[in-house]
Design a protein around this nucleic acid. Structure first.
Length: 830
RNA sequence: GCCCGGGUGGUGGAACUGGUAGACACGAGAGACUUAAAAUCUCUUGUCCUAAUACGGCGUGCGGGUUCGAGUCCCGCCCCGGGCACCA
């Protein structure tokens, strides 16, 4: 080993060694138990790696390396989520083809990631923008289509005028495009959807998206976000017959039927199907005008809290069957077409929105609930609108009941009379996957002269993304104008094949391809299976391998994917399970998120603030081992924490001290009886570090290693056993140094990566003597040391004899004695 | 408003199922080595009182409570981060 710790040459040497000897190549048919540790694969942006990436990657690397030491066959791959808008936007700006910039970015990312000494099996590298990958993305589309989980529908969708594409609901944040922050506008378009909603509830053999959450080890916050997003609500659909129109009715969803005696109006959302035929509506003119006005508004404009209620009277009435009361029927844009039934029963006394609407329209307000404070006066102010608790009044057979009892009773009544049915509603809607953009996988579908859709035959896949396109967006997919893409020859060939199989009847012709591309979240919904079998040319992944490696034992990535990627990937997994491809219905058994690393000033790192730290600079100045340890030592893994360049130096100083420990004279094994005392420390360290890694407490694992280092630094000569153990414990955190010590100092051959993880022996953990704290009336007044095996009586009497304790005891009488073995002796004196 | 997290020295953070709060670092201060600096090593470092590193008091967002004993448990608040939200 060199005299000086030169991280540059040392790390380069070992990275080359790992590469050349394929140290981390994973075998599919090993006898060892399997462990699959996966990072959320990065989007290779032009900006390169930032310090947030190594945080997650180091954590999975530490776990992977420890699992190898523990005898597991570890699958630990890396790849590139390389389709997506930024490359395309870059192309629009610079006219550099997305393929060129993306492949270049991948090279940069790969070199940066490799410099961190992460133990990936690079033979399994994948990139979603390459045809041998997206061929299977297209297969998944067809798989879902064949199983009625993909469909085409004309529907109001979210359109971003800046990105020139539709967006999934999940990509709309506060009514704005998640990416460019432009306001999203509604557009009615025919688009492709996946039936994510099919899997909300359990199916035979497949746990639903809701109950499945109870079977996996995920952060509570993430589970709760998914539950919120799915938004399951139970309530009833009440039918209100229309007085003026025989046989017609309006159905309203409500979670609060208990207040129904207080209903004074009903409101239809402007998109309600009843409004399609205006001829039946007395006030058709105003209604039509109102609907037209509404269509000009974005959903954000309509739904922003505090927006003044608007609406128009239809001239019709409905009847509330519990009391025979006639209720006026309105149209109002605070009622949304896609929520519940798109129609709402108005109970202004006990719903704030309904109250505001009633005030505006001059509709009666009836009190049907009195809360604990007993205010039973007429409701005239917003503060009086009691929504949450109370006792029923003015409600006939419900009077006197608590609202929860009333809810139950009236539901039974409604259902028994056949006026309503109990229903479950969800916020989650099907996933819109069409995108009018270029840099994504084409949708493998063609259309005939009548507009009917056909899957492209298997042997025609992949549908290659054409190169001859104009990226400049004009509202249609750039693929529309590609000659290469729409070659008549290719379409003819597909037509013949479809006719041969009988799918296409003889008198039809295939006239065009689907020219939208798929949402890039499609690519990342199944990549974890491709890593299990990356070179397979017959299938997306061999089912035996999918069952061997899956589910993923550990998945690590940012918390920003709580609803998008993580929900879609679960949907794919459930579809595969249902249709017999795999034998598990949750893809990620254990999930952890890394906390955001903020800039030193506590702000977000951003180019505009000029506070971005580039990991490359840290690697070249201090070394990858230092960066790895530093990021792990910063604080709890999942918490946000600020960067601190000063502390990076502190970590490097620690590793320098470690290096010096390995330069001290070594006591060989046969002499180790000389150092029995240090064995206790060795074994305590093993226990602590092992448990801390398992619990994702990397910061305390490192402080334990620091304590160990401090102890060894104090020794003149260091026992070989301590150095061997330390090298192993260090290897997940600082693998380059560990390899160097293993060969260069300890004289071993080959890599340390597969050496057995050290185990601790309980007998060394037992101390000969322990320190007791003595409390009098709960306050610590003294401490003393005593043999660890002393019994309770001995410890108590020793404590009582302490001079300081005698003082306190003499102040009164001992009422109680407390004894916590090995820790505390307490006296209660009065 | 509802649902999840979180709040501990100058700073990042430790603290097992209620048992000596502040581990381990950073920063700061003092000293050793050195012609000097860097590097390294040693010591000090929650706060108040104090000559004292004596005896004490106070201290884990705030206010109560349970307990011999509370950062940890219970009740009521405040603040920060994230998710959902005119959701019927």
């Amino acid at each position: 080993m060199a005299d000086k710790y030169d991280h540059l040459s040392l790390e380069q040497k070992w990275q080359q060694f790992w590469d050349e000897s394929k140290t981390f190549k994973t075998s599919d048919d090993s006898d060892k138990p399997k462990y699959y540790a996966l990072d959320m694969f990065p989007y290779p942006s032009g900006a390169g790696l930032h310090v947030g990436h190594p945080l997650g990657y180091t954590a999975t690397d530490i776990i992977s390396r420890k699992k190898r030491h523990e005898g597991y066959e570890v699958l630990h791959p890396m790849g590139w989520d390389s389709f997506g808008l930024p490359a395309e936007n870059y192309a629009i700006k610079t006219q550099v083809h997305p393929e060129q910039s993306t492949l270049g970015n991948i090279e940069t990312f790969k070199a940066q990631i490799k410099s961190l000494g992460l133990s990936y099996d690079w033979d399994r590298e994948i990139a979603t923008c390459l045809p041998d990958y997206y061929r299977w993305t297209q297969w998944f589309f067809q798989f879902l289509y064949k199983n009625d989980l993909a469909y085409r529908k004309k529907a109001p969708v979210n359109w971003c005028d800046d990105c020139n594409t539709v967006l999934a609901n999940e990509q709309v944040v506060d009514g704005k495009c998640e990416r460019c922050k432009h306001e999203v506008i509604p557009k009615k378009l025919t688009q492709w959807f996946f039936r994510v909603t099919d899997f909300i509830e359990d199916q035979p053999e497949v746990n639903g998206l809701l109950s499945g959450l109870d079977t996996i080890d995920w952060p509570e916050s993430t589970k709760s976000s998914q539950k919120n997003w799915i938004g399951r609500k139970t309530g009833i659909n009440i039918e209100y017959p229309i007085v003026e129109l025989e046989g017609e009715s309006v159905t309203c969803f409500t979670t609060r039927p208990d207040t129904n005696f207080g209903a004074t109006f009903v409101v239809l959302g402007p998109e309600h199907p009843f409004l399609n035929d205006l001829s039946r509506i007395p006030n058709a003119d105003v209604v039509e005008q109102y609907v037209i006005e509404t269509n000009k508004k974005s959903e954000k404009d309509r739904t922003e809290q505090g927006t003044e209620k608007t609406g128009v009277f239809t001239g019709l009435h409905v009847v509330n069957r519990v009391n025979g009361k006639k209720l006026p029927l309105y149209v109002g844009d605070f009622v949304l077409g896609h929520v519940g039934t798109g129609a709402v029963v108005g109970v202004p006394g006990h719903d704030l929105r309904d109250f505001q609407f009633a005030q505006k329209m001059g509709i009666d307000v009836i009190r049907v609930v009195v809360d604990a404070e007993g205010d039973d006066s007429p409701i005239t102010r917003e503060e009086q609108v009691q929504e949450e608790k109370g006792t029923m009044v003015n409600s006939e057979f419900l009077d006197g009941l608590d609202i929860w009892e009333a809810k139950e009773k009236i539901t039974e009544h409604y259902v028994a009379e056949g006026w309503a049915e109990e229903v479950v509603n969800y916020k989650l809607r099907d996933w819109l996957i069409s995108r009018q953009r270029y840099w994504g996988s084409p949708i493998p579908v063609v259309y005939d002269d009548e507009g009917n859709e056909y899957l492209i035959p298997d042997d025609e896949l992949p549908v290659h993304l054409p190169k001859d396109v104009d990226f400049n967006p004009d509202g249609e997919s750039p693929l529309v104008n590609s000659e290469e893409f729409h070659s008549a020859e290719a379409l003819k060939q597909i037509e013949e094949k479809l006719k041969a199989t009988g799918e296409l009847s003889g008198d039809r012709t295939i006239v065009r391809r689907e020219s939208d591309t798929m949402d890039t979240f499609m690519c990342s919904s199944w990549y974890m299976w491709r890593f299990m079998d990356p070179k397979n040319t017959d299938m997306f992944c061999d089912p035996d391998l999918a069952n061997h490696w899956g589910p993923i034992d550990l998945y690590v990535g940012g918390a920003e994917h709580t609803v998008l990627h993580l929900l879609y990937a679960r949907f794919f997994c459930k579809a595969l399970k249902k249709h017999g491809y795999i034998n598990y219905d949750e893809p990620f058994a254990k999930l952890r998120h890394q906390g955001h690393i903020l800039a030193e000033d506590g702000h977000k790192m951003s180019k505009s603030l000029g506070n971005v730290v580039n990991p490359d600079d840290i690697v070249s100045a201090f070394g990858a081992d230092t960066l790895r340890c530093f990021e792990m030592f910063l604080g709890p893994f999942d918490q946000r924490k600020p960067w601190s360049t000063g502390s990076v130096g502190g970590i490097r100083k620690w590793l320098d001290r470690v290096y010096r420990v390995y330069q001290k004279p070594m006591i060989e094994r046969e002499e180790t009886n000389k150092c029995e005392a240090s064995m206790s420390l060795v074994h305590k360290t093993i226990k602590q570090v092992t448990e801390d890694i398992d619990n994702f407490k990397f910061n305390t694992a490192i402080s334990t290693l620091m304590i160990f280092t401090n102890e060894l630094t104090a020794l003149e000569e260091v026992p070989r056993e301590a150095l061997e153990t330390f090298a192993l414990l260090l290897s997940p955190f600082a693998p380059h140094l560990a390899e160097e010590f293993w060969q260069g100092v300890l004289g071993k051959e080959g890599t340390v990566a597969y050496e057995p993880w050290p185990t601790y022996d309980e007998k060394y953990l037992v101390e000969d003597s322990v320190t007791y704290a003595v409390q009098v009336n709960g306050k610590v007044r003294a401490e003393f040391e005593i043999a660890a095996d002393s019994d309770k009586d001995t410890v108590l009497s020793t404590a009582k004899e302490l001079e300081k304790i005698q003082q306190y005891l003499s102040e009164g009488e001992i009422r109680k004695e407390i004894f916590v073995p090995g820790k505390i002796v307490g006296f209660v004196v009065k």
